[in-house]
Design a protein around this nucleic acid. Structure first.
Lengths: 156, 156
DNA sequence: TATTGTTATACTCTATAACTATA
DNA sequence: TATAGTTATAGAGTATAACAATA
């Protein structure tokens, strides 16, 4: 029997995988909406989620290039370039030409950007924490374990 | 002892909740990116994720109003109105005035919209299924259980 | 010639404000 | 007067194509 793709041929376990996939399609956008909402609220509408992720990346990777940001965000260079422009105009980021390769720009958070990033992260986290307040320890463990697997699958 | 917010007041369990919240902030956007990417690929760049969710909602709720869509998507009426216009122009949706209240428009999928929606859902699901192909049954169960809790928290 | 990044252009998603039509 | 929806306008995120500067 030809089974070029075990995950899709009716082999044992494929139904579970499909159910998992459907659940991801159902639940993840809803959680993302909540996350976006919490972030917007606490950001005072100053930063979008992509901007937040951009700042977080630059914070973790000082001196990163525009291309590195684009790659991390999964967007094209013009998109990243424009986003960085807006963040720089807003005073959250600084760019300086790379002395080693003058085509490149090295990106860094400003002090203001770092403060902003920390405040958003903390406030959003506290919002989510409150949302989880009524959940049992067992439920929290399930979330933690499920997301840990998803991290392995999608963050690598 | 004043503890107006047990989730934030260092009580037992709050650290776990905070860790959960941080994991959500980390992992969910990455999964969402993958989902968006898979959808875009299989949609032939015809539908965005919001459009897909709009069609899925109308498919589940035939005769829904513009306001109901806006409420489900968490967007304003003008946003939903414009999105519905684009989907109607693209032939995926039909609108008809509600005879009971002629301010309202009743929304329905067209046959083309239903086909499109099903194809996208199936292809995206198959993509995700393939992505999960190397995971153990135990991992899949963890994903399933974790997302089930998140669904309760964020889809209600 | 290949790579890094920007500019030009166009489309979707998003919001607020102002408006129309109906109840 | 209140509600459902649209129009007008503006800004962010997104892409592709064409370009500039540097390697």
């Amino acid at each position: 029997m030809d089974a070029p793709d075990a995950a899709l041929a009716g082999g044992s376990g494929s139904a579970v995988r499909r159910a998992c996939a459907e659940q991801v399609m159902d639940v993840v956008p809803a959680v993302m909406d909540a996350l976006r909402g919490a972030m917007r609220q606490h950001v005072g509408d100053q930063l979008s989620v992509p901007q937040f992720r951009c700042l977080a990346f630059v914070g973790r990777n000082p001196g990163a290039s525009v291309g590195a940001v684009a790659s991390f965000l999964g967007v094209t260079m013009p998109t990243a370039s424009a986003m960085i422009d807006r963040l720089a105009r807003g005073g959250a980021l600084q760019t300086e030409p790379d002395p080693q390769d003058r085509r490149r720009h090295r990106l860094q958070l400003t002090a203001a950007g770092r403060t902003q990033l920390q405040a958003i992260r903390r406030n959003t986290r506290d919002d989510l924490t409150r949302t989880l307040a009524q959940r049992s320890a067992d439920d929290l463990q399930k979330i933690e374990q499920g997301l840990a697997v998803l991290r392995q699958v999608f963050c690598s």
